[in-house]
Design a protein around this nucleic acid. Structure first.
Lengths: 205, 205
DNA sequence: CCGCATCCGGGGCGATACTG
DNA sequence: CAGTATCGCCCCGGATGCGG
C-alpha cells in the first residue's frame, strides 16, 4: 500500500505526463484497452506477454487513481482521459515502425496489434467501388479489413464472405500491406480470391 | 559494460519504440536537446534536475547506439531520427498539460521548458501589424516571444527592445498566456509596456 | 572544472507460487 | 478468474572519486 512518489518534480507538461504514463508497461496496457475495448484482467494479460501479474495489478491501480482507466462491473475500461492518449500512442507507433525491420524471430506477434498501423497505412483508392473485405490470417487470430466509401476499418475476427484472404506471418504480411515489398517476393505470404482488394488498399509506391 | 536486453519482445511498432525511448529520463533528455540544440554534458545535467550522473551517461550511450543522438566534438546533438521524436514529445506534452494545474510548489521550473507549449499555444491574431516582442522574466532565465507575420517564435534570453515585459512565477504566467486566467487575477504577474502584445498572442476565450 | 566511473542502499521489476 | 505473496535481480538515485 505504498503511494506513488516517483515524480520528476518538474513544472513541465511533458514531465508531468511521463509521471503518469512513463512507467514500464503502462502505455502498452493502454494500447490493449484502446485496441480491444473493455477488457478483463486475464484478457489484458494475454495481450501483454511477459508482464508479471503483480505489475499488471499495480499499473491498473495507478492508472485508476490517475483517472486513465476505470472499472465497470469487472471490466477495465479507458476513461475519456485514457482515450486522449491515442495521439501519443500513434506518434510513438509511427516513430517505432522503422524498428520493426530489425525485429527478431523471438518477438511475439499478436494480430490485433496491426489494427492501429493498418488503419493509418491503408487507404481506399477507389471509393466509388462497392465495399470489399480482406481477411488476414496471421498471428494468433484472424483480422478483417473492411474497405469502402473511402474508409478502411480494421476488425478482429474473420470475415463472413471475404473477397480475398491473405495468409502468412505478420513480419512478412506487414511489409506487403505497406507497399514496401511486392507480394511475389514476400516469403510465406499467400493470397486467395480477388487480389484487386490489395491494389485497392495498399499505398501506391 | 552490460548490453541492452530489456525489450518487450513484441512485434509491434509501439513496443519497439518504447524499447528505445521508454526508459526513465530518456525522453526528457531528448526534450533538452530539442529545446537547447547541441549541448554539453553539464548543460544537459542542469536541464534535468535530479538525474544521476551515471544515468545520464548511460542514457546517452544507449541513445547513441540507437541512432537518436550523436557526438560532435564534445557536443551531444540530435540526429535526424532524434528530431523525428518531436511529434511524440508534443503529443505527450499536450496530454500532460492539464496535470500542470495540480503542480506543487516543490516542482522545479526552468523557463525554456515553456518554449514548446507556448509555440503551440500562442498565435498572431493581427498578422498585418509590425512585429513585436514580449520578454518573459520567469524561472531561471528570461525568454523572448517574437510575434509577427502570423508567426510566433520563442527564443531563450532577453529581448533587445521589448514592447512589453512580463514578470512572475512560471506557474502563474502560463495560465495567463493560455488565456485561462485574466491578467488582473494572476497573483505575482506584472506586465510593463504595451499590453497590446498580450492581446495579440493570447488565444481568445 | 568537465565528463564520466564506481560504489552503495533501496526499490522497481520479473518470475513463480499461492489464494479467495 | 483476479489478483496477492514472496523472492532475487538489477535498475535507479545519491554520493564520491578520478583522469584529462
Amino acid at each position: 500500500m505504498l503511494f506513488r512518489v516517483r515524480t520528476y518534480g518538474q513544472y513541465c507538461a511533458m514531465a508531468k505526463g511521463l509521471d503518469v504514463i512513463g512507467d514500464r508497461w503502462t502505455l502498452l496496457i493502454v494500447r490493449e484497452l484502446l485496441l480491444s475495448g473493455p477488457s478483463r484482467y486475464s484478457q489484458l494479460q494475454n495481450g501483454l506477454p511477459g508482464i508479471a501479474s503483480n505489475l499488471l495489478a499495480d499499473r491498473l491501480r495507478d492508472l485508476e487513481t490517475a483517472g486513465v482507466v476505470a472499472r465497470a462491473n469487472g471490466d477495465v475500461v479507458l476513461t475519456e482521459r485514457g482515450r486522449a492518449l491515442e495521439p501519443v500512442m500513434r506518434a510513438i507507433g509511427r516513430w517505432g515502425a522503422p524498428l520493426l525491420a530489425r525485429a527478431t524471430s523471438a518477438d511475439v506477434f499478436q494480430s490485433h496489434w496491426l489494427a492501429l498501423p493498418l488503419g493509418e497505412l491503408l487507404t481506399d483508392h477507389t471509393p466509388a467501388k462497392p465495399p470489399q473485405t480482406l481477411e488476414l490470417r496471421t498471428g494468433d487470430e484472424p483480422l478483417t479489413v473492411v474497405v469502402g466509401r473511402g474508409v478502411v476499418r480494421i476488425r478482429p475476427g474473420r470475415a463472413t464472405e471475404p473477397d480475398a484472404v491473405m495468409t502468412g506471418p505478420g513480419q512478412h504480411i506487414l511489409p506487403v500491406l505497406a507497399g514496401r515489398v511486392p507480394l511475389a517476393k514476400a516469403h510465406g505470404v499467400r493470397v486467395t480470391g480477388d487480389r484487386g482488394v490489395l491494389r485497392r488498399v495498399v499505398p501506391r509506391a
